[in-house]
Design a protein around this nucleic acid. Structure first.
Length: 636
RNA sequence: GCCAGCGUAGCUCAAUUGGCAGAGCAGCUGAUUUGUAAUCAGCAGGUUAUCGGUUCAAGUCCGAUCGCUGGCUCCA
């Protein structure tokens, strides 16, 4: 018997030896229309699949996440069919569904232009109208190889050659056939709302030494509304783009004279950075860290000892010669913190050390990867290194993770996802140390109760790590924080401490960054808040707006008073109408606009207008200050 | 670095097939005396990213360089 699980939680027993189509034939029409494919014993299958005996079957409906994947995968096939019709010489590579849509990689006789996308879309619409069923067939491996070879599909041939011997799964719609595991939509007509979005280059199999293919990206949804919503979201992201806001709000810039990926923090960006740094230092002090400062350069031999010249050289700037010695600019701070550790002998009683530094590093990033503040060549890490004994290690990890979450929460981030990255194949360090460290990381993660995933073999070669991703206001994920063990450098620098047994022991060394880099974090903050920073971060917290030049004296008095109270306040006394100056303050996302005219001058009050709530009417200066100070304190 | 696209005033964008580089905003000057999202007028602003080539003539066509954008590889 086949057990059919229905969406309402009930189940139905059905006779064996029927196909999926027959199975859903008995369902009510409304539900039947919703079904895209089936899940048979947990595996996605086409509707026209022959069901095995005694299977457990559930329906995949349009609203299920798997359905969207199937839709997009089928959309990729339809696109490939259209491309083949337009470019018969096109060779197919791969075409999966991805997070926000799908793509297909092609080897084409000429570069694509944006106009081609319109033509391909048109052909796709024809294919959809022609309503070909997606049919599944199994072909013997040898036969598949032969036919692909004959068709000149060398990429597909390469893929099939690597599959296990036996039957190879193909899907066909109309004249188009493609190697594919499936499943697919019942027919091409099911694709209703789609759009091709961009063309990009992509290496065959992601390998930069292999052919560069042309990738076409597209997206698809079950309804027009969902498609429109997706494009609205993209427009929203464009509005928040930190590169655009950074220029409009005069926060930062880059300059061709200086070079790409090198950031100029303007005064307003600088104010925000200073607030972040002051907060960061104070929190670190409270959490038992000591602040250290280290140079920007070090001798070649330092980087030889650390191993960076071996595994990181391609990201380091070329050295410079000084008095016959070669110096290199630092891409990381750790060797310097290690040098502090080595500056004297260390006892087990001294540990743990928690040394933090806002350390500016320079890394050569290939030109194509640079992106605003998010990917740069010079940046300041909020770095720290913890040196501790094995018995202290689990607690240090706990503390670090808790501290990390507290800091991120202060900046308004509430959604976190953790990734535990374990030992990769190529790695250094003793097995017991890896096991102990990985367990401590796992235990710390589980203590937080937050969702996490294990990235098997995703650790650095020198140690396991936790990567923490935050979700911003648009639901986009960003990685800032990382907590990493290092079994490499303590060994290379031969770090030790004297134990209670009078023997030398190697300390655990943990690298951690909470914000990651100040540049990247700043970029994320701009996008998260759409430039409308909460009061504690706002570069200009309030602007005083005299209604008339006659009110300038009183406006100056208000301005001086707030300034003296530590508020970042500006005075806009330009010869413009009050509406004009309010608009400008609003556009610049200033949280408080303080309108002062003759009425206020007489009563000693200020008329308060906030960015969020508009005109709030007049109140005393003290009331205003109390309100602002509360808002600053609560970081709201 | 690779693939594709792009680069015109501080910003956003115009400029038929190659035929006199223009507008709005911002800036400056003046007028206006203003009460919660843009007052009016005038002025100024350019080696069309840079260098080279084709042409009677190049913002426009070709080449190189630099930079930017979207991807790929890599990553805080």
């Amino acid at each position: 018997m086949i057990k059919l699980l229905l969406p309402d939680g009930s189940s139905r027993m059905v006779e064996n030896w029927i196909s999926g189509k027959e199975l859903i034939g008995g369902l009510e029409t409304a539900l039947k229309k919703e079904v895209v494919c089936l899940k048979v014993n947990g595996e996605l299958k086409d509707l026209d699949t022959q069901l095995p005996a005694d299977a457990e079957v559930s329906l995949v409906r349009r609203s299920d996440p798997e359905a969207l994947e199937v839709l997009r995968h089928s959309a990729a096939h339809i696109m490939a069919q259209a491309v083949k019709r337009i470019f018969p010489a096109a060779k197919l590579a791969i075409g999966p569904a991805i997070e926000n849509g799908f793509y297909y990689d092609f080897d084409l006789p000429r570069p694509l232009t944006p106009e081609d996308l319109t033509v391909i879309e048109g052909e796709m619409k024809k294919i959809i109208k022609e309503d070909y069923p997606f049919t599944h067939r199994l072909v013997a491996k040898e036969e598949a190889l032969a036919s692909l070879r004959q068709a000149g599909e060398k990429y597909k041939e390469e893929l099939v050659a690597e599959l296990e011997d036996g039957e190879i799964s193909f899907y066909q719609q109309g004249e188009f056939s493609d190697l594919c595991r499936g499943p697919h939509l019942p027919s091409t007509r099911y694709l209703k709302a789609f759009k091709l979005t961009s063309i990009a280059g992509a290496y065959w199999r992601g390998d930069s030494s292999r052919e560069m293919l042309q990738r076409i990206y597209g997206t698809a949804f079950f309804s027009r509304e969902e498609l429109d919503h997706y494009f609205k979201l993209l427009a929203e992201a464009a509005r928040r783009d930190h590169r655009k806001l950074g220029r409009e709000m005069d926060l930062y810039s880059t300059d061709d004279q200086i070079g790409p990926g090198l950031i100029l923090w303007h005064p307003k960006g600088g104010r925000i950075r200073q607030v972040i740094e002051d907060f960061w230092r104070e929190e670190h002090r409270k959490n038992g860290y000591e602040i250290v400062y280290t140079p920007h350069l070090g001798r070649r031999s330092l980087w030889e000892t650390s191993g960076h010249l071996g595994f990181y050289q391609e990201n380091m700037y070329a050295g410079m010669e000084v008095e016959g010695q070669e110096y290199l600019i630092k891409p990381m701070n750790c060797p310097f913190h290690i040098a502090i550790y080595q500056s004297r002998s260390r006892s087990y009683r001294d540990l743990p050390f928690r040394w933090a530094e806002l350390g500016t590093v320079y890394r050569y990033e290939r030109s194509g990867v640079l992106h605003g503040l998010l990917r740069v060549r010079g940046f300041t890490q909020d770095d720290a290194h913890i040196f501790c004994r094995p018995d202290q290690m689990p607690e240090e990890i706990d503390r670090t993770l808790a501290f990390c979450l507290a800091i991120l929460k202060a900046f308004g981030f509430k959604d976190f996802k953790l990734y535990l990255a374990t030992r990769p194949e190529k790695s250094v360090g003793a097995e017991e140390r890896w096991a102990a460290a990985t367990e401590a990381l796992r235990a710390a993660i589980e203590k937080t109760g937050l969702p996490y995933a294990v990235d098997e073999g995703g650790g650095a070669f020198y140690g396991p790590k936790i990567d923490l991703k935050i979700k911003d206001a648009l639901g986009r994920e960003w990685q800032c924080s990382t907590i990493q063990f290092d079994f490499n450098e303590p060994e290379r620098f031969d770090l030790s401490y004297k134990g209670s047994d009078s023997q030398d022991h190697q300390p655990y060394m943990i690298h951690r960054a909470l914000l990651g880099s100040l540049e990247r974090f700043f970029g994320i903050l701009i996008e998260n808040y759409e430039g409308a920073f909460p009061l504690w971060l706002a570069p200009v917290q309030a602007v005083v707006l005299p209604v008339l030049p006659a009110n300038l004296d009183y406006a100056g008095e208000v301005y001086d008073w707030l300034r003296a109270k530590g508020i970042r306040v500006e005075l806009d006394s330009r010869n413009e109408k009050i509406g004009y100056r309010i608009r400008e303050a609003q556009v610049q996302k200033v949280p408080y606009m303080l309108v002062v005219g003759s009425k206020e001058a007489e009563t000693g009050q200020v008329a308060v207008r906030t960015r969020k709530e508009g005109d709030l009417g007049a109140c005393s200066r003290e009331e205003l200050l109390a309100r602002m100070e509360k808002e600053i304190r609560e970081k709201s």
